[in-house]
Design a protein around this nucleic acid. Structure first.
Lengths: 256, 256
DNA sequence: AAACGAGACTTGTCCAGACAAGTTCACGTA
DNA sequence: TACGTGAACTTGTCTGGACAAGTCTCGTTT
């Protein structure tokens, strides 16, 4: 623990403190429902002023890790399991975080002009070239998801000299400095088409869980549009929400 | 605006300020991408110290409404549309927020002992009585979703003297003081069974979007377990996440 | 034994000041 | 004209203090 704190000691104190507190909660050192030490104690223990301690606690509070009221010490709240941005955005990261082995079989990678529908989704001109990748994704060797990704040229051109069978496109792009920083995910259900059926080993028309994803850069440019179809008995989505802390999610009607 | 601030003037200053700023962003008075006034200006305008202004801004920052870095003034961030807890939890609230007309046809309401599977989900003893409601939900008169809800006795007994055809169970329970304050939603896809098919007017086996919901009280007790099946061309789920602000959501593997 | 109340303790709120670190812009120089 | 340099400005960080408001404990009173 100390090692960690020291290794990043350029970070501001309040952030080191909140990281430390987060870790204590995660490691069950501070147990759910138990009260935290008082602010005065924390000040003395770490040799900082009350404002700094409060700044660290405010960070935890905004994440919903602690809750409490005036007069009584804050208590460790019910932990809402939440995946990091990388884990949620990247299939490979996700599988690794579960201790499973991700895999993929690239069916095709192509450069072609965007059709009308795709161009509309990605806010491109119809006919603008995009890079399209069709892959079957595996989990511990078993077919789990069919991925149809379309990249804008700027992001996708880096894929031709990348072995798409070898791993994470998300990770590869990130390591190249492409800043994928926002995702919008529309989740619905769809019947398997002929391609889905043969790849996933189910019969045509059987229900699949579909995630339509748009990935944005920091400045709001759309970089990727994806249609991922999961075997519903193999993967699904979990959302937790509470009255106190707002969560960015929505159930929306789909226009015909 | 002033009226509003005055009417709740018992609230702390930093909260009134953040409410005011939130409103300015919502009303497009402060436009997306534009920088906010400097902290010094805000202090002078409202006659408060910098700490208080910063406390208000920190609140907006934690909600992802503003973003910015050291040296330059914070800018209004891309608004991530997010539904309130009530709107996400209650079908009736949801429809109303869209300006649509919600409806429901109660197929049955019954008290029966919980089966093994349900008892496991709700952490009850097998055979403990639960109240089960089966309803077809409509949107502007059109069948949209089949809802299978099971309530623990404590919450469900209030439903027998409630006309389940008349509106929101969530709203009714809330008005009775039942504190539904947390939800866990597992989203997957499933083929329509005979009952779903006849109610929704589709053929058996066609793909439906399923939400398995557990509703908790403030102190962590499970009050409701629901299996909602949507016509996927009529409703789906949207999740937005960014690298900066964490979101409570997860994609999880489903154990066989 | 139960109810009440004073006081200690804790958190919430707000202020004023100081320095560090980054940005912006105008001015002077090459 | 193009380029750096530096001052002014802005936000981030941290401190110390003060009072308000709520909680808890324990001793006293009923």
């Amino acid at each position: 623990m100390l090692k960690y704190v020291q290794s990043i000691s350029e970070e501001p104190i309040h952030q080191r403190l909140s990281d430390l507190f987060r870790e204590r909660i995660a490691s069950n050192d501070w147990k759910e429902g138990n009260p935290l030490p008082s602010e005065a104690e924390l000040c003395a223990q770490h040799g900082v002023s009350r404002g700094t301690v409060r700044q660290a606690l405010a960070s935890l509070r905004s994440e919903g890790l602690i809750a409490g009221g005036r007069g009584k010490p804050p208590v460790v709240a019910h932990p809402v399991p939440s995946q990091s941005f990388d884990t949620f955005m990247s299939y490979t990261e996700w599988a690794h975080s579960l201790g499973r082995e991700p895999g993929q079989r690239t069916i095709e990678i192509a450069r072609r002009p965007a059709g009308e529908e795709l161009a509309g989704k990605m806010l491109l001109q119809t006919g603008e070239p995009v890079i399209q990748v069709l892959r079957l994704r595996l989990l511990d060797g078993l077919p789990t998801m069919v991925e149809r990704s379309s990249f804008v040229l700027e992001a996708g051109k880096a894929l031709f000299d990348f072995d798409t069978d070898s791993g994470s496109i998300f990770g590869h792009l990130t390591s190249l400095g492409v800043d994928l920083s926002r995702g919008k995910h529309v989740i619905d259900a769809v019947g398997a088409d002929e391609m889905d059926a043969s790849l996933l080993g189910v019969s045509a028309g059987s229900p699949l869980l579909r995630e339509n994803r748009l990935t944005y850069s920091r400045d709001g440019k759309i970089l990727e549009c994806s249609d991922d179809r999961y075997l519903p008995h193999l993967a699904n989505f979990v959302i937790e929400n509470t009255r106190e802390s707002k969560v960015a999610l929505a159930r929306v009607p789909r226009v015909a």
